[in-house]
Design a protein around this nucleic acid. Structure first.
Length: 353
DNA sequence: TATCCACCGGAATTTATGGAAG
DNA sequence: CTTCCATAAATTCCGGTGGATA
């Protein structure tokens, strides 16, 4: 049923950004100087997950690129070190620095390589305000940044070193879409990626309403509904397909999340999956008894308790595991029993008591 | 109520690894 | 070949927290 799968990819850029006209104008104004060869203003875009902060920045930058000579870079900053960020920018302007240059050497290298106005999108920049990366980039003429974060004030409050620079930035806060607005957006995706007439306006509005205006979720739900309809042999999307689309979309994300994690996480997940739920003490005990067998034919070795806590936290962040019960001694439970572990490290290590 | 204990999670430190320059 | 710089993962250290116990 899906005629163009790319339309539903997370990083797909639509030809038009519906209902963000004002924001686009604001951004273009902030970058007006680039047409004179100067650096643009600094920009901060804030708002909740999945409302199109990144898409807005990329889309507007693309438009700007059609009429001005600029370079741009898109850096995902989550967990990135200052050197990693500077390196990514270097790469975007076509000047790879030596593989292990000192951080300051990379900055010098970058300053020499930037030949025209350059705009750097610092995506997932919530942890960035304290980072030396900002100061280093501030020292490069013709370079300006777009900071993307969830909470504008929280970010500014922590930006001590570069506060002056960013306090004067163009600040944009995006909210969740209204039901009608998001339905428009979903309609555009449907026209681009689905056959005519397989979904109606009422269904789009229902999706938009259920996901509470979060575009990313809405788009994935629409895709899931189309896939379910195809599996069930429907010639168009039925309401039962919409019913099940949300769980299907979440399920897919969870499976992908689990697959993306390293082996240690899989061991912990498999242990939890075996029982469905465990308290912290039993979980650690179980890990200890099972560890040798689980890691036997693996180049990795079992990890200590502190590290297990971090893995567990990651599993929780990925919505694979939840903590329930009192804060003190909570129970860890598998969120989705249909997400199967990829390993069974426990078979040969005896059964549970 | 005061004290104790086990776990949580932030921060600093250690360890392993790898590329590049001298 | 050795040294320098960097990253990533894991461990150590430690203060905070909340339930249990005397």
């Amino acid at each position: 049923m899906i005629t163009d799968p790319r339309v539903f990819e997370d990083d797909h850029l639509p030809r038009e950004m519906l209902h963000r006209e004002g924001a686009i104008e604001t951004l273009l104004r902030a970058w007006d100087h680039t047409r004179l060869g100067e650096a643009g203003d600094e920009v901060i875009i804030a708002g909740p997950s999945g409302v199109g902060k990144t898409a807005l920045a990329r889309h507007t930058l693309k438009r700007l690129g059609e009429r001005a000579a600029i370079d741009h870079a898109h850096v995902r900053c989550l967990g990135a070190t200052p050197a990693t960020i500077l390196r990514a920018v270097c790469q975007a302007v076509g000047a790879e620095p030596p593989g292990n240059a000192a951080t300051e050497a990379i900055q010098t290298h970058l300053a020499e390589s930037v030949a025209r106005p350059t705009i750097v999108i610092l995506d997932e920049a919530d942890d960035l305000p304290e980072s030396p990366a900002l100061e280093l980039m501030a020292g490069v003429p013709q370079l300006s940044t777009v900071v993307i974060t969830h909470d504008l004030n929280h970010w500014l409050a922590r930006a001590t070193n570069t506060h002056d620079r960013y306090a004067g930035a163009t600040q944009l806060t995006l909210g969740r879409y209204g039901v009608a607005e998001l339905a428009d957006i979903l309609g555009a995706r449907a026209r681009a990626g689905l056959p005519r007439g397989v979904v109606d306006r009422g269904q789009l509005e229902r999706i938009a309403d259920t996901v509470a205006g979060v575009a990313r979720e809405g788009i994935q739900a629409l895709r899931a509904a189309a896939e379910l309809a195809a599996e069930r042999g429907h010639s168009r999307i039925e309401s039962e397909d919409v019913d099940d689309s949300f769980e299907q979309a979440r399920h897919r994300i969870r499976c992908a999340n689990l697959q993306s994690l390293p082996y240690h996480h899989h061991v912990l997940y498999a242990i939890l999956f075996e029982s469905g739920q465990l308290d912290g003490v039993t979980l650690h005990d179980r890990y200890d008894t099972v560890a040798e067998a689980a890691y036997a034919d693996h180049h990795l070795t079992p990890v200590g308790k502190r590290s297990r806590r971090n893995k567990l936290k990651k599993l929780i962040a990925y919505d694979l595991v939840a903590r329930e019960g009192p804060k003190h001694d909570p129970t860890y439970v598998v969120v989705d029993a249909d997400v199967e572990p990829s390993i069974q490290p426990l078979r040969e290590a005896g059964s549970l008591k």
